[in-house]
């Protein structure tokens, strides 16, 4: 255990540790100086930071492009919500069902793809296909509301972590805890055999296999870990928004939004997904607000902004914002 802790900090400069501590402290204190609106934006930013981190495990670490991560968000959201509404099982227990369901979906997709050597663009298409037909399935799943939606009772009560019922500030800290844990978990992964093997597979599958790596097994592991992590974002989604519509939660737009953070922040990096999510969410809201303030209420301006960010990053910062920023701030690791 202590060895694991030591390894977490290995190769990280003191400067970087201090910077990380400051960021975390700032996030801990942020609600004290935020109004309701700012808090809601921060919650969404944390949601994307967490989900982006989860997606990054599959794409950033293992090189498997999923464009259907809304599937895991969706099935997990439904699973936890159904357990709570239909059987009165609180999400603190229901989340295990949600994790299991999402992982099962991940395992099926992974098995089909990796067993039959579906890779690259075709793999990405397969992930979209699964998300799409699951959406259609839930549209007709009338027991869970069908296309009319599935709702949780909105209650005004004090924070209750067992049932995830409470004010926004509770959701903020839940999401912050998840994001921090995911960050540490991913750090742990990259400092382990699994992480090295994933990187090797991402870089060159054939060479990886020649070095004794069971490529199928490690790719399966990446999908299962990623889908399992993503599922908790789904549980949060269900209990924060209290309503689930298949056409929204499973939509491809949701999958794309989820992956923009890590791409813009820095694929395969640990801090990139967090940075990317905050840059996108906070700036996009800022742009919208400024436009509204100046009298231009343009629908879809957020999406245009996302597109611009993506274009800027792809053209000028192909590694994402974080790697060059890290260098600029002098936070590079020691060896």
């Amino acid at each position: 255990m202590s060895r694991m802790l030591r390894r977490l900090g290995e190769g990280v400069s003191n400067r970087a540790l201090v910077a990380l501590g400051l960021v975390f402290a700032a996030l801990l204190l942020a609600p004290l100086v935020s109004n309701g609106y700012v808090l809601s934006v921060l919650i969404i930013a944390l949601y994307y930071a967490y989900a982006g981190q989860a997606w990054n495990v599959m794409m950033g670490f293992c090189g498997q492009l999923s464009l259907g991560h809304s599937l895991y968000v969706g099935v997990a959201a439904y699973a936890a919500a159904i357990f709570f509404v239909k059987w009165n099982v609180p999400p603190v227990i229901g989340m295990f069902a949600a994790i299991a369901v999402a992982m099962a979906f991940g395992a099926v997709i992974g098995f089909l793809a990796f067993r039959f050597s579906v890779s690259g663009v075709y793999f990405a298409l397969l992930t979209i296909a699964f998300a799409e037909f699951t959406r259609i399935g839930f549209d007709h799943f009338t027991w869970a509301g069908g296309s009319g939606g599935f709702f949780l009772k909105v209650e005004d009560r004090a924070a209750d972590l067992i049932t995830l019922r409470g004010p926004p500030i509770m959701f903020y800290y839940v999401m912050l805890a998840l994001t921090a844990l995911a960050f540490l978990f991913c750090r742990m992964l990259t400092q382990s055999r699994v992480g090295y093997y994933w990187f090797a597979i991402r870089e060159d599958q054939e060479a990886a296999q020649a070095l004794g790596i069971n490529v199928f097994r490690y790719k399966m592991l990446a999908v299962i870990v990623s889908s399992g992590m993503t599922s908790l974002a789904g549980v949060f989604f269900a209990f924060y928004y209290n309503n689930l519509f298949p056409e929204q939660i499973f939509s491809m737009a949701r999958s794309i939004e989820l992956i923009l953070g890590p791409i813009i922040g820095g694929l395969g990096t640990l801090f990139g997904p967090i940075l990317g999510a905050f840059v996108l969410t906070v700036l996009a809201d800022l742009v919208t607000e400024v436009l509204v303030f100046t009298g231009y209420d343009i629908p879809g301006v957020k999406q245009v902004f996302y597109g611009l960010c993506l274009a800027v990053v792809v053209i000028w910062l192909p590694l994402g914002i974080w790697p060059p920023l890290k260098r600029r701030l002098g936070l590079e690791g020691r060896s």
């Binding site: 990187f199 870089e203 060159d204 054939e206 020649a210 395969g268």
Partner: peptide
């Protein structure tokens, strides 16, 4: 490998 296959990003 005859045609080298380094893990370029590592």
């Amino acid at each position: 490998f005859q045609i080298v296959k380094p893990f370029a990003g590592l």
